[in-house]
Design a protein around this nucleic acid. Structure first.
Lengths: 146, 146
DNA sequence: CATGGATACGTGTATATGCACCTATCACTG
DNA sequence: CAGTGATAGGTGCATATACACGTATCCATG
């Protein structure tokens, strides 16, 4: 852990460590754990997350979907591609606004999500054994604040 | 925060939330913060991290470098490409083992790292105002354990 | 109704990430 | 020393991520 102890006895963390790098590493480790659990379903955790949002919220314009996932708009647009190609998501024109395109779950998408849920839950449980989900949420909240 | 309160009064976090997704989101937010701070240097936080390791450890075979960064071997190999193209890192044959290729910092790389340090430190400080670096380290440690 | 700012989106480019599969080299062992 | 398992790398492929820049549409206002 490279913990140093300063003059006054307060332990300080090695300033060498890039906190961002450490956080990215944690995210990679968690991603690997989930992706392995989801492997039988052919979904990745990123894709699962998108399906989950669409399931909870119903059809959404791409930009709003991106906002819900805290993803860059164009990133979300591209992340929809593989899902659309596999027929899990459908993107259609918005009748009310010609600029907007609505993303929505197909029946196959709903089925894929349902099938993936148990696998996801297993990963979720295994992660919870290692870290407190609440503290992860708090972390993300502190970072996302405006 | 979507906090629910169960029968017995214990607050439980919305099980709907994918802890992995939340963690990935936090990593994206931190990355954006660092990348913006590093922008004047033309480095990204991922690249900075690699330079930092090479600076601390000296020349390393790609596989060992990847292990230090907790990155997949082939990912590290590819992440070296832009650094090599810009002349910040040099990859040479290992005289002692024809299979191995050593990655090392060039003079330009050392200079780039030195120039980036203040910007990185600013991001590091700004992040520390929002979250406890120690808790992030603990999180990563819990996730990386075996 | 013309127009200008705001909004929704797409594309090009570059990096980041990891899996599957392949080759080359090394070190050990019979 | 031949053979074999372990080790170091490389490539193809697919997805994930975001910035810069451009286009289409909407809406408020003059």
């Amino acid at each position: 852990m490279h913990i140093h102890v300063s003059m006054n006895g307060t332990p300080t963390y090695e300033s060498d460590f890039c906190t961002c790098g450490v956080l990215r590493r944690a995210a990679r480790a968690a991603t690997a754990l989930y992706d392995q659990a989801l492997r039988p379903t052919g979904l990745r955790v990123t894709q699962f997350a998108i399906l989950k949002i669409l399931d909870r919220c119903g059809p959404l314009p791409v930009t709003r979907l991106a906002a819900k996932a805290a993803l860059e708009r164009t990133t979300m647009a591209r992340n929809l591609d593989p899902l659309e190609r596999r027929g899990l998501v459908r993107v259609t024109a918005d009748a009310a606004d010609a600029r907007s395109r609505l993303a929505e779950l197909t029946e196959e998408g709903r089925a894929a999500l349902a099938g993936a849920l148990p696998h996801w839950q297993r990963a979720q449980d295994r992660l919870a054994q290692r870290v407190d989900p609440g503290s992860v949420q708090a972390l993300a909240a502190a970072l996302s604040a405006e």
